[in-house]
Amino acid sequence: MGNMSLPAFILAVCTSMFRLSAPLLFASTGEIMSEKAGVSNIGLEGQMIIGAFTSLLVSYETGSVTLGLLAAGVFGALSTLVITYLGVMRKQNQSVVGLMFNILATGLTTYLYRMIYGVSGVAPTIDTIKNIHIPGLSDLPVLGPTVFSQNLLVYLAIALSVAAWYILNKTKLGLCIRAVGENPRAAQAAGLDVIRYRAACMLFTGFMAGIGGAFLVVAINGRFIDDITAGRGYIALAITILAGWNPLTEIAGSMLFGAADALQLRAQTLGFSIPYQAFVMLPYVVVLVSLLLFGRNAPAPRALGMRYEKEGR
């Protein structure tokens, strides 16, 4: 790898960029939806971990990656009920609930993994999903191997972002979701069930985060490892802010961090004189620097994270 030419290097980074941005894209598309409805879901990281673990368990035991992905989405969605109940319905501090949820999810998946597959021995692995070949497009120079030879989930992630943008901005459902997140009182007066909208958006978020976490297993690692998400849930939270809660901008944001991630993976093997740790921390540094540059006074939904009293005074 040490003698890769520069164009080949750039091409390789671009190819990985698309793949590595997908988990962030799934998770942040979900998060935008729940935050638009006014719920600050710090538990994104935990939902991703649950998705990653479930996808391995189900894919490995049934031999079907599709089932594994579905199960990851379903369990990710169901797990949000904890946060919805305590953070929305019982009006506890959503940040604290989300943080504890993350500790719980990490602990529980690690515990179950060790119990089911043992501490030592061979780690269960699954075959990662294949990239697709689009006749014609995949054979294009440059664009072919980078953009048009990814796995289906990568395209699905982008498509869902676009769909989320459409729903939020062009449909009545989107209008209702935004109303619930901007001014719950008024939304309630207009006959909307605020809690129900928030719970539904949280289920969607959990489903998306579950798929995002599963992506790490079924499309990248092929197995479940400790700290598999490595803070991607928190990076996705930052992307949500950076994108100004706009699913289209969010695609660009996810690509940026995908690129940083791809760069650090590739650059480590290039044998620069810079210590490899500098590359490993690159995605996190990029997040913070972009928050610094673009995150100032991002237009957050007005009722984000606030407790909502039904019969308010």
């Binding site: 940040s95 803070g231 930052a238 802010i241 913070l288 100032r296």
Partner: peptide
């Protein structure tokens, strides 16, 4: 920047 101290302080752990 009005960014959540939760996200920033957490990301700093990785750095």
């Amino acid at each position: 920047i009005h960014s959540s101290e939760i996200i920033v302080s957490l990301l700093l752990n990785y750095i």
